[in-house]
């Protein structure tokens, strides 16, 4: 896998990232579609994710939590807007309370995922994140993610 491009647009509060995999599109799609596979990569090793609800259908709800090293949990939700397997997925991603209900009056992100298999057995994945505000970005980074990054880096060091 290679990350082949990253584009930041601070005026539009948008991050676009492209990765390429030597795999057919169905295999790549499966990592979004299967909650047991999704939770193996969504959260960092120190804040692993558990998906408790996963309805990958238009209007479908997805609910998950991430567990930190001290047993603290951070809860999140997706609301699926568009699904066109195995090529396109669009959803809102926000923060939730402990019962998984979206936090009222709290910003959420818009996520756009596009997959294309060209040539065969080579899939390009574009992930675009659109934030409603700078505040929303800060909140999401506060969701155990900054700590998680440090944890992931130390794990890599252990492997090397």
């Amino acid at each position: 896998m290679t990350v082949t491009s990253v584009h930041h647009d601070p005026d539009a509060l948008t991050l676009s990232i492209r990765a390429e995999f030597d795999e057919p599109v169905a295999a790549v799609w499966d990592l979004w579609n299967d909650p047991r596979k999704l939770e193996r990569w969504w959260g960092p090793p120190t804040w692993p994710a558990t998906f408790v609800r996963h309805e990958l259908a238009p209007g479908g709800e997805i609910s998950y939590f991430m567990t930190g090293p001290d047993g603290d949990t951070s809860h999140g939700w997706w609301k699926v807007l568009v699904v066109e397997p195995p090529h396109h997925l669009e959803f809102h991603n926000g923060l939730a309370n402990e019962s998984g209900a979206p936090l009222a009056d709290t910003p959420f992100m818009l996520m756009n995922v596009d997959l294309r298999e060209e040539p065969p057995h080579h899939t390009t994945m574009d992930v675009v994140t659109i934030f409603p505000s700078v505040l929303a970005m800060e909140k999401f980074l506060g969701m155990g993610m900054a700590e998680g990054m440090a944890g992931a880096l130390s794990q890599i060091d252990d492997l090397l």
Binding site: M1, V3, V6, H8, P10, D11, L13, L15, I17, A19, F21, E23, A27, V28, D30, L31, K37, R40, W41, W42, P44, V127, T129, F131, V134, M137, E138, F140, L141, M145, A146, M149, A152
Partner: peptide
């Protein structure tokens, strides 16, 4: 906009790491 730029960079790191794990899962499967 400044704050946005810094935060976008942090999100870039987050997604690069997420994609590394994505790739690991893909290879394991």
């Amino acid at each position: 906009l400044h704050a946005a730029t810094e935060l976008l960079q942090e999100f870039e790191v987050l997604w690069r790491e997420r994609l590394d794990r994505f790739d690991e899962v893909l290879n394991e499967e």
